[in-house]
């Protein structure tokens, strides 16, 4: 709370521009969920030849050290040991070492694309039909420390906490607590309306991933997909450093 009070008192508007940005685990989680997780939901691909051509398993889609996972096996708000069609939870690598490795399925989408089920058919409640949804979605930890990530940035931004995020072809994150990084050190607090970037370009712009890792659960809110909101999900990851992020 002391951090938040000091932030509210001291934060000044950011100078808009493109920066190297370090996302804290909550921001990493929202970025992962919104920007790539939804793209991995296979119901968006059914009958769509363009999507099948653009998203073949085995395609290089991100930096070499990037691994993105969805798993309903982990306790927390994304714990789904069996999905709403009765399929057992899986640990599904969506991206492994930068390579597109899997996608999320219900039985219908798995059959349609001739892939295996993944335990991701979920309904908000009895009023709705199960559709493809995420469970716990996260980036796996890397080999640097948070301090190392920060120390290698001449001028950039650290996003410690966020209000919300969303993602289509462009991802957006509305930060709540952010600081400038100057000469490798955390500097003054800054107010930012939104940071944005092209999802597919940004996955290649991740150049550092921390050992520190946090998977978060939430009691309020959740994921929205069309009419079904809010569905409990878990998300998180390490601190990640991303270049060329648009900051407003």
């Amino acid at each position: 709370m002391d951090r938040d009070i000091k932030f509210v008192k001291d934060a000044k508007p950011v100078k808009p521009g493109k920066y190297t940005v370090i996302f804290a685990p909550v921001a990493t989680g929202v970025f992962t969920h919104e920007s790539f997780g939804h793209k991995s939901e296979a119901d968006f691909m059914i009958g769509d030849e363009t999507m099948m051509k653009e998203w073949p398993i085995g395609k290089k889609v991100g930096a070499d050290n990037l691994c993105i996972v969805d798993s309903g096996e982990i306790l927390g708000s994304g714990f789904v040991p069996f999905d709403d069609e009765g399929t057992k939870a899986h640990k599904t690598y969506l991206i492994k070492n930068g390579i597109l490795s899997g996608r999320l399925h219900s039985t219908i989408t798995a059959e349609s694309l001739k892939e295996d089920t993944t335990g991701n058919a979920r309904a908000l409640n009895f009023e709705f039909e199960p559709i493809v949804r995420m469970t716990n979605t996260y980036i796996e930890p890397g080999d640097k420390t948070k301090e190392e990530l920060i120390s290698e940035v001449k001028e950039g931004i650290l996003i410690e906490d966020i209000n919300h995020g969303s993602g289509m072809s462009i991802f957006t994150i509305a930060p709540k607590i952010s600081y400038m990084i100057r000469d490798g050190k955390i500097a003054e607090p800054v107010n930012i309306s939104v940071v944005t970037g092209n999802v597919m370009e940004t996955l290649h712009e991740i150049d550092g991933i921390s050992k520190e890792f946090e998977l978060l659960s939430f009691t309020m809110g959740g994921c929205g997909k069309m009419e079904q909101f809010p569905l409990p999900v878990g998300l998180g990851g390490p601190y990640i450093r991303v270049n060329n992020v648009n900051v407003q």
Binding site: T172, A174, N191
Partner: peptide
């Protein structure tokens, strides 16, 4: 995904 900052600066893609 856009938002306002606490003091009312607006930005959105």
């Amino acid at each position: 995904g856009g938002d306002f900052t606490a003091e009312g600066v607006f930005g959105t893609p």
